[in-house]
Amino acid sequence: MFKKALILGIVSGLLAGVAGLIYAHLYYSINEADFGKVASSIRIVAGSVAGGILAAIGFWALNKWLKNNGEIVFNLLFSILSFASLLTPIAYRLPRELETPELFPGMVIPMHFFPALAWFTLKPLFFRQKTI
């Protein structure tokens, strides 16, 4: 169970990282706001993979602890925590040489949902749903 969850976490983290990189590239080409200094490609991928691994640990722990209700609680928690994490980019103070800090949350906020999206998308491939 933990091995499967961990692989799912890593794969969904990588997928979220790739989605984040594509989004960052698009955002830069549209707004010409370069935040590479604070949100570099490595940081985007590493942050996404870290999110995926944390989700895997949480998923495994909650399923072990709450048995049948573990997944429900996990899904709720993952969504709530992803949403709560938006406060970080909103309150983040960028280096002052970066000209347009008001555009920073617009770039980073969607990325905070990518690990959850990737997890929920890939999960059926790793954990087959039992037929009712």
């Binding site: 309150a91 103070r93 960028l94 002052r96 008001e102």
Partner: peptide
């Protein structure tokens, strides 16, 4: 003015 935070600038 640039405080490094868009909301604070506003």
């Amino acid at each position: 003015i640039n405080t490094g935070n868009g909301l604070q600038n506003k």
